[in-house]
Nucleic acid binder design. Sequence first.
DNA 1: ATTTAAGCGAGACGGTACGTCTGGTCTTTAT
DNA 2: ATAAAGACCAGACGTACCGTCTCGCTTAAAT
Lengths: 201, 201, 201, 201
Amino acid sequence: MSKIATPPPKRRGRQRSAAAEAAILKAAGELLARLPLCEVTTDAIAQRAGVSKATIYKWWPNKNLVALDALGASVLAQLAIPNTGSARQDFAEQLRSTIAFYSSQPGRLLRQFLAEGQNDAEFLKLFRDRFLKPRRDSLLTIWRRGVERGEIRPGVDGELVLDLIFGPMMYRLLVGHGPLDDIQATAIVDVVFSGLQKGPH
Amino acid sequence: MSKIATPPPKRRGRQRSAAAEAAILKAAGELLARLPLCEVTTDAIAQRAGVSKATIYKWWPNKNLVALDALGASVLAQLAIPNTGSARQDFAEQLRSTIAFYSSQPGRLLRQFLAEGQNDAEFLKLFRDRFLKPRRDSLLTIWRRGVERGEIRPGVDGELVLDLIFGPMMYRLLVGHGPLDDIQATAIVDVVFSGLQKGPH
Amino acid sequence: MSKIATPPPKRRGRQRSAAAEAAILKAAGELLARLPLCEVTTDAIAQRAGVSKATIYKWWPNKNLVALDALGASVLAQLAIPNTGSARQDFAEQLRSTIAFYSSQPGRLLRQFLAEGQNDAEFLKLFRDRFLKPRRDSLLTIWRRGVERGEIRPGVDGELVLDLIFGPMMYRLLVGHGPLDDIQATAIVDVVFSGLQKGPH
Amino acid sequence: MSKIATPPPKRRGRQRSAAAEAAILKAAGELLARLPLCEVTTDAIAQRAGVSKATIYKWWPNKNLVALDALGASVLAQLAIPNTGSARQDFAEQLRSTIAFYSSQPGRLLRQFLAEGQNDAEFLKLFRDRFLKPRRDSLLTIWRRGVERGEIRPGVDGELVLDLIFGPMMYRLLVGHGPLDDIQATAIVDVVFSGLQKGPH
DNA sequence: ATTTAAGCGAGACGGTACGTCTGGTCTTTAT
DNA sequence: ATAAAGACCAGACGTACCGTCTCGCTTAAAT
């Protein structure tokens, strides 16, 4: 799928057209910016890219994976990890910017990927590995620093910490049963850090 | 769509066939027990129910809403709300049983509904109102009791509390990036109640 | 089919509604005046007549027969048979007026009946007996007078004579491969009377 | 539709599958041999041909035109034009063989085409041009020779002559109000040549 | 006056063909 | 060998019409 190393650059016949790959991803990206994933057809991508459908299927097993490549794994990773000296503040800021991202067009696409993934385990795994994993690895840094600084008690798995903070956001995002703004973001981080219990803090 | 009040049970023409409706929902249910939502076709439902496709489209705008009715709003509400005297324990138990439910066949279907909802806002709203809302209303009881007993500090919105507890579960369920078992359930509730901070407890 | 003798006009239950029958035929007639037979649906007739579809099917076996009744058997018979003293002139005039009729809206309907009849022998027979038979019986008068007067040689079957005169018209009407006007009508009758042969006339 | 000139047989992509087209026409032909046109469905043709319905609709706008192609324009033209030296005899023989043809299975189909044509002017024109025109052109030869030989008086349009001979046949064929056999055929040609008038012949 | 046998409007129903659409594969010719 | 063009298969989609049916009401003859 696209990421072929091609170290021996001289094969027998016509070389793979880098132009074609680029055109496909560009076309897919442009279409996905306007339409939801399920309304973007392979034919439309091929036509807009000036490329044969067969060429698409030659390099990608299906439309969803084209979309995955089109979005670019970079997109989430680009959210830089802050370091204010407070894990709580860092997480709050990350949560806010993540919410903002998921409300943008490319963010909406990620939700659609998640939806598609419910019917395609393989695709879900790819989505997870390409988009979420790197992002979560970055976010773990905040957690690690928090533990080192003594802000966060050890004994709680970092992965779980991330889910506690970003899970509620994702839930609201997907179900849409409640608001999702900076106030909510702050409230989420507050509870996760301070707990629900009454207590001396 | 099924929920026709019909308090005046005497309309002029032929009555809507209860048998047909039941057969449709039964057929849909049986198919959905074996196949994922996206592989269940309207034709298959009609054929299995011994019913005309036109009859289905007369009463439901599309397949997804048939499935919604087929599952039955009851399914989630059936999880009884415990009352152990401890909100923390009640939530932990609920979280565990909810996880178990979502791992069952009907639970998987709910995830597919959520997926479909990402491309159909109207359907998402229906799903929310019919399945999640009643369940969440029940769960709020646990929260309310917790506040009254002094276990949970006031000032945190009940809805948010539910998302803090069930959001992480949903996230793992949909993304599948980590395990989801009783241990995780307990850990989630622990953190939400005690917080991540080091503190005197 | 409508023409029930009903000599014992006292049956047990509610009497057949003359109003309903009239409304059905009127509605069908109005629709057939605007639309081709194949685009007039039973539902449309029922709705326009303010009548239940079941009432239609109670008295007519299908839509085509309703149309047959709606048109009224009278329509063709209304073309009066002239008596100029010359069978040739009488036939010529009849041919012209028949052509004119078949170009009118009700005439077009007759062609559609003929078309339907190609797939429904029973319907064809009814159409023949109700519309064509009486008309042809009238036209035979012209032939008979011609024979009596000595204009037409005996030994040619009267039915065949009618076909020789009206067959070519019908053919052009249905196939549309050539014009059909008064000139053609005259030419047809001329040849049928004088023959193609060169001869002393 | 089928008659694509394709003199430059080199287009870029995959060529239209001759096998598919042949299979479709073969399947349609076989079905039409057993069933009336109106009972042959597009799905049945597709299935029997082992072809996708989309392929059919790609090349033909509807079922009727498939049937038109399936029958093959050749069918009527295959009736060879005799040359006995007598136009009257030639016409009589042609009329007899045409009657025989229209009583055969493919002939019945032609009548159904004519019926369909009453509701579809475009289809009627195609039917006329593909089936009737060539046949009539051939038959005109008989007329022309008759005129040249002095058997047939000039001044009567050849097209009209054909209608005078074949119109009565068609009329009886479609309406079915009288017999249609060799005796009738002979009688028709007799009258058309000799005329109805008493006269010295 | 009561029964009883229709007739009737409303409209739901099973059946089935239609023509459209999309996903993904395959073939042909050109590079 | 790969690409572009585009034909192909499979099969689901939602719509439409047909003719049947069921329901509750109305009418009028028979009791």
